[in-house]
Design a protein around this nucleic acid. Structure first.
Length: 301
DNA sequence: AATCGTAGCAACCGCGTCAAT
DNA sequence: GATTGACGCGGTTGCTACGAT
């Protein structure tokens, strides 16, 4: 189905462009009084000649509790770290920054942070130093390995998130939720009083989730370093030494999946609407637990 | 003073997903 | 199962302000 995002309905001319004061008064007043359950009806009820989508966007960007001042250096650091970990998922990143919208975060990234990283010699896409990218360019084809299985992808996500947690003690003293692959999300909790943090795989609709603690994942928080913003090379095979030290080795991931599975089993009792996709992923995880050799390098056909 | 280039921000657009019919 | 409509997200564009020439 192809149609314009904002189309004319009932012969009402849809206005576009900058919002005027009158429109800015009508829409928020209506939303505050009646809620925002049906955006398409709001233009009709308020008399504003905008499409519902436009009203929603305007409301989201100008809700009363939003900040409109410049980003602090702490906020910018957090954006960089989160971008390194999960990429340009602006809505998720914005959830970690109270009072900021995804549009704010995205604009700040595009106008300031990308340049900041580039000036420091760091590629804002891969979060690697340009020098390393150039060096790696010469090695393309010799050691190319993409994460292909569900567990390997999760492994990469966890490794990135572990880097994130390692490098940011001030932000992650509370429950944090990050969406990773597919419909899944992982909730990570950490406290400053000990070095433990817990990971559970969750569903956004579920509120009663039981945690499993894993004390081995992060041992200590080193001082801040820009190196923390650099992603581990996802395509390079680990050296023997790295293989031993890596936070989320296959065994760890399998262990994690076991724990997540266990955690999820607690969830099932409280969440009746666990998705079909999650069930399929469960089956896949169970298969890999039973047949660990399947985690080995895929065959080249 | 006029022109040009750039940065920052607001809004639009297209697509994917989901729910209702 | 197919269609339709609504919502949410990320990429992109356009406008405005401001500084440099």
């Amino acid at each position: 189905m192809v149609r314009s995002a904002c189309y004319e309905k009932d012969s009402v001319k849809i206005k576009s462009g900058v919002w005027i004061a009158e429109e800015d008064t009508k829409t928020p007043t209506f939303v505050l009084e009646h809620g925002s359950s049906n955006w398409t009806s709001i233009p009709k009820k308020t008399g504003v000649k905008r499409c519902g989508k436009s009203c929603r966007l305007r409301w989201n960007n100008y809700m009363p509790d939003l900040k409109h001042d410049n980003f602090t250096s702490q906020e910018e650091d957090l954006i960089i770290k989160l971008h390194a970990a999960i990429g340009s998922r602006w809505s998720i990143i914005a959830q970690q920054l109270p009072g900021r919208t995804d549009n704010d975060v995205k604009n700040n990234w595009n106008t300031k942070l990308k340049k900041k990283l580039s000036q420091m010699g760091i590629d804002p896409v891969t979060h690697k130093p340009f020098s390393k990218l150039i060096a790696d360019y010469g090695n393309i084809g010799t050691s190319f390995h993409k994460p292909t299985t569900q567990i390997e992808v999760a492994n990469k996500d966890f490794r990135n998130y572990a880097i994130l947690l390692k490098s940011d003690p001030y932000q992650f003293n509370q429950q944090q939720t990050l969406q990773t692959t597919g419909n899944s999300s992982f909730m990570v909790t950490k406290s400053h009083s000990d070095d433990d943090f817990s990971i559970v795989k969750g569903d956004s609709n579920c509120t009663n989730i039981k945690n499993e603690t894993n004390p081995t994942l992060v041992d200590a928080f080193p001082p801040f370093s820009w190196n923390d913003f650099l992603l581990e090379d996802a395509f390079a095979p680990p050296t023997n030494n790295q293989e031993q030290q890596i936070l989320f080795s296959k065994e760890n991931v399998m262990s994690q999946n076991g724990k997540m599975k266990e955690a999820m089993s607690h969830q099932v009792s409280s969440c009746s609407d666990i998705s079909f996709v999650e069930a399929i992923l469960d089956q896949e995880n169970e298969m890999f637990l039973s047949f660990p050799h399947l985690l080995e390098e895929p065959s080249n056909y």
